[in-house]
Amino acid sequence: MPRKSAINRGTAKFQKLYLRILNTVKAQFPNAPDEVIAEHAAQAVYKYATALGLYEGEWRGFKAFMASKNLLKSYRNEMGPLRSAVIHLVRLRMTGADDEQLRNAIESLSFDLEIKKLLKEYFGVQ
């Protein structure tokens, strides 16, 4: 069994992020109470973790969608850039992008037409 599990590494990353945000806020607002600064830092880490979970969930959903269409093995070599594209589209959707903006973002990607068609179908863009 490995000495450091994935959970421990993730916990350390979030603690490091929390401390970085805490120190940044303390430097910007030196007169603010410590409880308020700690609360804001904790909320920021929570929002970051929630976003990471959403991105990972959408990526896994898209991979399952590709597998259901029997295209997962065909595009195995493009999974890295495809994951980045899916996360980019999710971020666009989170910021309130409409269907036209999502369609334009998908069309600007440099993937095969079949992948673009899958992305449009997955994100509900005609």
Rank of each mutant, 00 (worst) to 15 (best):
G53Q: 06
I21F: 15
F111R: 08
K13T: 03
D34R: 14
Q28C: 05
V45H: 04
Y55H: 11
N31D: 05
K47L: 14
P33E: 15
K69L: 07
Y18H: 12
R9C: 04
A105T: 09
L113S: 14
L82T: 00
I37K: 07
R83M: 05
F111P: 11
A51M: 08
M1S: 02
V86E: 05
P81F: 00
A49D: 10
N8K: 09
R9N: 09
R83A: 05
L72P: 08
A97V: 02
V45D: 15
M79A: 09
S108A: 15
K117V: 02
T24R: 12
P33L: 06
A67L: 05
P81D: 04
S108P: 00
E56H: 02
D112E: 11
E35Q: 11
K120Y: 08
Q43V: 13
K47F: 15
S74L: 10
S68L: 05
I87D: 04
D99T: 13
A97Q: 01
E78S: 06
E56D: 07
K26S: 02
S74M: 13
L54R: 14
L17P: 06
K116G: 01
Q43P: 03
I37F: 02
L17G: 05
L54N: 00
F111Q: 08
R93F: 15
K4M: 14
R93E: 08
D99W: 00
S84K: 07
A38L: 05
D34L: 11
A38E: 09
G10M: 12
P30C: 12
A12F: 01
K117P: 02
